[in-house]
Design a protein around this nucleic acid. Structure first.
Lengths: 295, 295
DNA sequence: CAGGAGCTATAGATGGTGTCTATGGGAAAC
DNA sequence: GTTTCCCATAGACACCATCTATAGCTCCTG
């Protein structure tokens, strides 16, 4: 693996010398002195064994060979300049992309305002949202397909760095059809006498509540399983049963009275939203900025 | 005229680090040590404020931002490599061009063997031949349209550097129709009784012979004027008159007897071929090599 | 599980070289 | 003739690119 060739820095000097047609001007452009430029050009000429410039009293002019070199170096210089501009734009968040993984419900009910805010502040950043279950999001992250994942805590994975975000409280809610239960304080076993609606997927929330019932010796078996948080809410509103949802996701319905919360004699465990990134991997600029925004 | 930006040399290091996926390998390719490469990459990252590589136990991998940079730098590197190869080829005379100015007759009768030789030795060099009168050739040279000019001496021009080449001797020749003149020794005025054929253009040779006659008080007025040396020879062979030609250009005809030289009682002035280049301007590689060949 | 063999990061020392100042020469312009 | 641009050269200096040495990390292997 041989890498013959000159110091690339010399080509920068050559570029400016050729472009300005003057070693003195090139020196100014590069914040150098004229002898430095003179010396740099001489180095190139010596290494190539080719004279690149004619020296005139009014400046320098490319020789035939020099102009051949210039035709390449000019392109090369343009590319490097574009690259530097692009890096500056990336740094500045004028361009870039932010890839987030998470569940639909978290996107809609938790992340949406942040995403709107971020998008308004940095309209040049393209947002990629990948939804999936917690394990799927984790593998997206490990495969490098997303910059950060937003999932329910707890996450135990030494490869991941998890930042806790707001706390969410799951609860049971019901609609008008069960209005007579508003003032009742339920025990877990009493709740089982009513139709319960749960999220169908193996979500962390569902596993948690199932385990809670089991720890009291009960088995929680849903009457209905639905595939989205929206349906959980809608089904409860329509009186199809009592839904287990995240309270913060039904704030509106609770306020307007289309849903009410079932009071229980046990405390349901809260859960936090966690923002995951790869441990020991630098954050992309966009991801870093987004995380700052969220916290 | 601002030139922000990094030391281009850093991009060379970046290129190899990205290409090999290993700082250690990059160091080997660049004949450096690993800490040097590490340091160089760090500099780039610090200047951009962007992390370019993920550091793994088995090497490094480009971040998203790093791979954007790489897409530019890779192209840039390819161009520079091509440029360096091109320069090496030019130096090596594998490619290139040689632009020579001169008169048709000198090309044909003087330069041709050298050109053939040069072309055989350096088949990759393209030859451009521009013919013209001496003043035309000089202006070609000053305009940079040719690398060297081949004309009759003397040339007096302080901007030009002239290398004397072989001496040529002009003479009068006639064909079979004037066979009876073979043994005669002519004086200038006696020659004027015969039809003389001269080159039509204001060539240096014609001016010289006209002046010679004038210095003896005679006026040389050609019976026929022709536009090429070939016609001078052909007309003489066919007996249309006595042609004034360069002896070296009719060697073959003199040997085979289709022409013979007129003996004169005065010595005609010899002239040298001169190879002109611009003074104080570096020779192109091809021109330099060609001049070596000729001398 | 310990040890070896990769890899990269960091610290500190050093020498090379890139850059500077000072100067000279040459051509053009005034 | 004098000035005023160029660029080339010489020599000195300081910076920084590079080095050596070392540490930390992960993976692999006996």
């Amino acid at each position: 693996m041989v890498s013959m060739g000159n110091n690339y820095e010399l080509y920068k000097v050559f570029y400016w010398a050729a472009k300005t047609g003057s070693l003195t001007q090139a020196a100014k452009a590069l914040y150098l002195t004229q002898p430095s430029v003179s010396h740099a050009i001489k180095q190139l000429e010596d290494r190539f064994g080719i004279t690149l410039f004619y020296r005139n009293p009014k400046g320098v002019a490319l020789t035939h060979e020099g102009s051949i070199l210039y035709s390449y170096i000019e392109q090369s210089h343009i590319l490097i300049t574009l690259a530097e501009e692009k890096m500056a734009a990336l740094k500045n968040l004028d361009i870039g992309e932010l890839r987030i993984g998470g569940s639909d419900s978290l996107f809609k009910h938790y992340l949406l305002p942040y995403l709107e805010d971020f998008n308004q502040t940095y309209p040049g950043i393209r947002l990629h949202l990948s939804h999936g279950t917690t394990p799927e999001v984790i593998s997206f992250l490990k495969e490098g397909r997303i910059d950060l994942g937003v999932v329910r805590m707890p996450i135990i994975d030494s490869q991941l760095e998890v930042r806790e975000s707001i706390q969410l409280q799951d609860c049971f809610v019901a609609g008008a059809r069960f209005a007579e239960l508003k003032e009742v304080v339920f025990s877990l076993d009493k709740l089982l006498q009513y139709p319960v609606i749960l999220f169908s997927r193996n979500s962390r929330a569902r596993m948690a509540i199932t385990e809670l019932f089991q720890s009291y010796g009960y088995t929680l078996k849903p009457e209905i399983e639905v595939g989205s948080v929206d349906l959980l809410i809608e089904f409860a509103r329509r009186g199809l049963g009592i839904s287990y949802v995240t309270r913060e996701f039904v704030t509106k319905e609770l306020e307007e009275g289309s849903l009410f919360e079932i009071s229980l004699d046990v405390r349901l465990p809260p859960s936090n939203v966690g923002i995951m990134t790869m441990r020991n991997m630098p954050l992309s600029i966009t991801a870093g900025r987004f995380i700052e925004l969220v916290r």
